[in-house]
Simulated scan of single mutants.
Amino acid sequence: MILRSIGLFVLAALLEIGGAWLVWQTVREGRAWWIAGLGIVALGLYGFAAAFQPDAHFGRILAAYGGVFVAGSLAWGMVLDGYRPDRFDVIGALVCLIGVAVIMYAPR
Results as ranks from 00 to 15, higher is better:
I2K: 14
I2A: 08
I6T: 08
G7D: 10
G7Q: 10
V10D: 13
V10T: 15
A12Y: 10
L15K: 02
L15W: 01
I17S: 03
G18Q: 01
G18I: 02
A20L: 04
A20I: 03
W24H: 10
Q25C: 07
Q25T: 10
T26V: 14
T26D: 13
T26G: 11
G30I: 08
W33N: 06
I35D: 00
A36F: 08
G37P: 02
G37Y: 00
G37Q: 03
G39C: 05
V41G: 04
A42Q: 03
Y46K: 05
G47W: 03
G47M: 09
F48Y: 13
A49D: 09
A51W: 14
D55N: 15
A56G: 15
G59L: 15
G59T: 14
A63M: 05
Y65R: 06
G66F: 04
G67W: 09
G67N: 12
F69T: 05
G72K: 01
G72N: 02
S73A: 03
L74P: 00
W76N: 09
M78T: 14
L80I: 12
D81G: 11
G82S: 10
G82C: 13
Y83G: 08
R84T: 12
D86Y: 02
D86W: 01
D89A: 11
I91E: 06
I91M: 09
A93D: 11
A93Q: 07
A93H: 05
L97I: 11
I98M: 02
I98D: 01
I98P: 01
G99E: 03
V100W: 00
I103A: 03
M104Y: 06
A106W: 12
P107D: 12
R108H: 10
